[in-house]
């Protein structure tokens, strides 16, 4: 057995007419990995997830769960998956515990009472588990959703927009919890349109835009600048010294102006070791510097860069 939990190959969903909601999506998930599915609303994240869990029929493509073909061994594949699709919905006329019992009964492997209690404890619902779900807050429902998804110890957890309706504390708890599961070897696929969350939660992200996967990145390589020599630096100077500043910048080799912002700021691209040089030259030229700041290339920048490239292409195409 390899360490691949899921392999998605050329997944495509075409709806009536020619419109492709998801087009040729391929990616792999490793054991114990938290993979983010990131994209703006309408990018095809939910459709992709629903094709994987079998709620939506795929037009083309293959999904393998632990090496088993979803088309041929659908039930075996589903046994390995636990999921929350969209807002967690429950039978609100029953208690949280009774709801969980229903899902426990549907598992192919028997689930003991101890396991039930363990999961309830884990999602911190012990105090309210005998209450009817209609009394639950959205956060509690979200946690009950996580409970039903992990009850049967799936190898793969799929969460569609799990942070919707969660307060910052709840999001943090979910994050910690997913990390805990990952350490136990459970892989998680999380979708979201919130970049900052993905950055904190995931090991890797798959970026989707208009039904296509446009990039797969490692979070660590994105958030730390260590990998590239080039740095984005913003420099803030006195308004009157703007021209002098520009002259100084042009004198230093290896520094290029990305753009001028407002009337007192430059965004520059440069090597990190050139920052002191530039600073010294500016002081020598008697430019009043208010601030030099190194900007991280965050996932957001990357995301925006990727999607704006796409926008440019769109405009050219028209």
């Amino acid at each position: 057995m390899s360490d691949t939990v899921m392999e998605v190959k050329g997944l495509t969903k075409q709806v009536s007419g020619k419109k492709r909601i998801v087009h040729d999506a391929s990616f792999v998930m490793n054991k114990g990995e938290i993979l983010g599915l990131l994209g703006p609303n309408g990018a095809g994240k939910t459709t992709t997830i629903r094709m994987i869990v079998g709620l939506i029929n795929k037009t083309e493509g293959k999904v393998f769960i632990n090496g088993a073909d979803l088309d041929k061994e659908g039930l075996a594949c589903k046994s390995d998956i636990g999921a929350i699709v969209e807002n967690p919905s429950f039978y609100d006329y029953m208690s949280g515990y009774k709801n969980l019992q229903l899902y426990a009964r549907m598992s192919k492997n028997p689930i003991t009472k101890e396991r039930m209690d363990e999961v309830v404890e884990l999602v911190k619902l012990s105090h309210a588990i005998q209450d009817k779900v209609k009394k639950y807050s959205l956060g509690m429902k979200q946690r009950l959703g996580v409970a039903q998804a992990i009850l049967h110890k799936p190898a793969l957890l799929i969460l569609d927009e799990p942070t919707n309706g969660l307060d910052p504390k709840g999001i943090r708890e979910l994050r910690d919890y997913l990390r805990q599961l990952a350490n136990q070897g459970i892989s998680t696929l999380v979708s979201s349109h919130l970049l900052s969350e993905m950055q904190l939660m995931c090991d890797r992200v798959v970026i989707m835009e208009k039904g296509k996967i446009i990039d797969v990145s490692n979070i660590s390589s994105l958030s730390e600048n260590g990998n590239s020599d080039k740095l984005i630096v913003s420099i803030e100077v006195k308004k009157e010294h703007l021209q002098q500043t520009e002259q100084v910048i042009k004198m230093v080799d290896g520094v290029s102006i990305v753009k001028q912002e407002n009337d007192h700021m430059f965004i520059l691209e440069m090597n990190q070791n050139l920052v002191p040089t530039l600073n010294r030259k500016l002081v020598e030229a008697e430019v009043d510097v208010y601030g030099i700041e190194s900007k991280k290339t965050s996932l957001e920048d990357k995301f925006l860069a990727l999607t704006s490239e796409d926008n440019v292409q769109m405009k050219e195409g028209q």
């Binding site: 039930l75 589903k78 549907m106 598992s107």
Partner: peptide, 14 residues
């Protein structure tokens, strides 16, 4: 209507 059908259909049953 209330979305619970999705949770039934992702279980290992036809």
């Amino acid at each position: 209507d209330n979305g619970t059908m999705k949770h039934l259909l992702i279980r290992p049953y036809e």
